[in-house]
Structure formats: C-alpha cells, structure tokens
Design a binder for these strands. Sequence first.
DNA 1: ATCATTGCAAAGCCTTTGCACGCGC
DNA 2: GCGCGTGCAAAGGCTTTGCAATGAT
Lengths: 127, 127
Amino acid sequence: MKWTQQRLAVLEALWAAKDHITSEDLANQLASEGKRVGLATVYRNLKLLVDAGLARELHLGDQIVRYERNDGQTHHDHLICESCGETIEFCDHEIESLQEDLAKQYGFSLTGHRMYLYGICGNCRKQ
Amino acid sequence: MKWTQQRLAVLEALWAAKDHITSEDLANQLASEGKRVGLATVYRNLKLLVDAGLARELHLGDQIVRYERNDGQTHHDHLICESCGETIEFCDHEIESLQEDLAKQYGFSLTGHRMYLYGICGNCRKQ
DNA sequence: ATCATTGCAAAGCCTTTGCACGCGC
DNA sequence: GCGCGTGCAAAGGCTTTGCAATGAT
C-alpha cells in the first residue's frame, strides 16, 4: 500500500471528521481545504482503508453509507437523535454480554453486531 | 388507498416470503407466478406499504434494502449467519430494557432501535 | 366520471470501472 | 523503471419520475 498524498488526505480527513461522514462530504471537505482529490479516488481509498482496518463503514438505517475512523480498539454503538441527527457513541458491556448469551442460545457463535438506538435528544425535546 | 390487483399482489408476495426480500426478488417472484407487475410499481408499493405500517424496511448491514411484513405487533431483531445467510428473528426484553436505560442516561427518549447480531450458526460451524 | 395507480422508458443518483498518465518506491 | 495509484469520463446498478393510458370506486 503506497502512501500517496491523496490516500493520506482521505485518511486525515476521516480522522479529523468529528461525525460519521459520507464519501461525498469527505470529498467536499478535501476540496474546501484546497486538496484536489477525485471522487473516484475517495471511494477507492475509503474502501481500502476499511479493508486495512483503518476505517469502518456504517449503515445508520437510511440508505446512506457513512464512514468513521477505526482505531481498532474502540468498538461502539450509536444513539441517534431523529430530530437533529446528533449521534452519540456508546459501549455497554452488559448489553453485549446479553447478546452473547442470546446468540449462544441459538447455537451461534457471535462475530459482531450492530446496534442503533433511535430517539429524541434532550435538546430537541425542549423545543 | 385503492386495492389494485398489483398492490395486493405485492402485499401477498411480501406476506408469503419467509425471508426478508429485496424489491427485485419480489418482482421476480411475482413474475414467476405469472403476475405481471412493473418493477416501478413494486418499488412504489413497497414504499407505500411501509408508510401504511404493513411492511418494514430492513438494512442488514450491506447496501441492500430488504423488506419484511409488519404485522404491527411482533417487533424483533435479527441474528444473521455470516456463512449461510440464515436469519433468526428474536426479541429480548432484557436487552431492550437496558437500551431504554442507556438512552435515558444520555437524556434521550427512545423511539426505536435496530439490532443485528452477526455470527456463525451451528450448522455452518460443523462443516 | 373521477382520480389514484400503472407501465414504460427516461432520468437520477451514487458508485464502480477502463484507460492513459503520473507518482511513489 | 516498474507498477500501483490517480483522474476523468463513461458505464453500471438500483431507484425514482414523467406521462399517457388504465382501472377502482
């Protein structure tokens, strides 16, 4: 894997993004920084970064694919405000242990999971 | 909402499908039964059925949108075998109650969730 | 009779691919 | 210099839409 400046730029943008980001937004972000990286290259590199374990692909429930950095350690799930779109990342070991139990009941060995909680955040409820 | 024969056909096919089904598969299924329903009509009706609460749209983690019947009562989550694709539906109140707690901790009022557990089923592990 | 619904084909959107050029090693 | 990586534009899937014709009530 060659570390071309485009690939680095994609990685850095992904690392800098506070929220989960779409391919297009990432490309726009790069463009706004004056870095010209073709959209196809963004797509290609996001895929590669996922394969390399440096990024993670998210499907939050709509059809839009988003990416986030993957530092390889912080597994987490998502709590999403349906009103303002704020997303909170969390990790709950108690739930995860129940998931393990449940899979075992069905004879499955668990390899992973995705959990998305949807709700209305405190701020939005006040308005 | 008019109950045209096409709409009924889509609904019936969805009801009959044992597994979660894609728009295209559903269209093929109809075609194989000799019912000629345009693909656009399938798409339009699946959307409408979701709005009407008769169907549910699933995003199992790939980019493929699948549908399942929604009888309005049986909320459930999915346990998916990554090897053979078998999916098991389950509902675990203990996990759901923990989800509620967790949302509350973050000031959210929970409106829903999606949970997908991925693993290898007993059969596939034997092979 | 009226208006929602359909079918078809065209258009849209996002994503991937082919190919010649350029850059990292 | 070699070969991977890039950019561009074209092609690909899947989904939606425009429009005239059809069908449900």
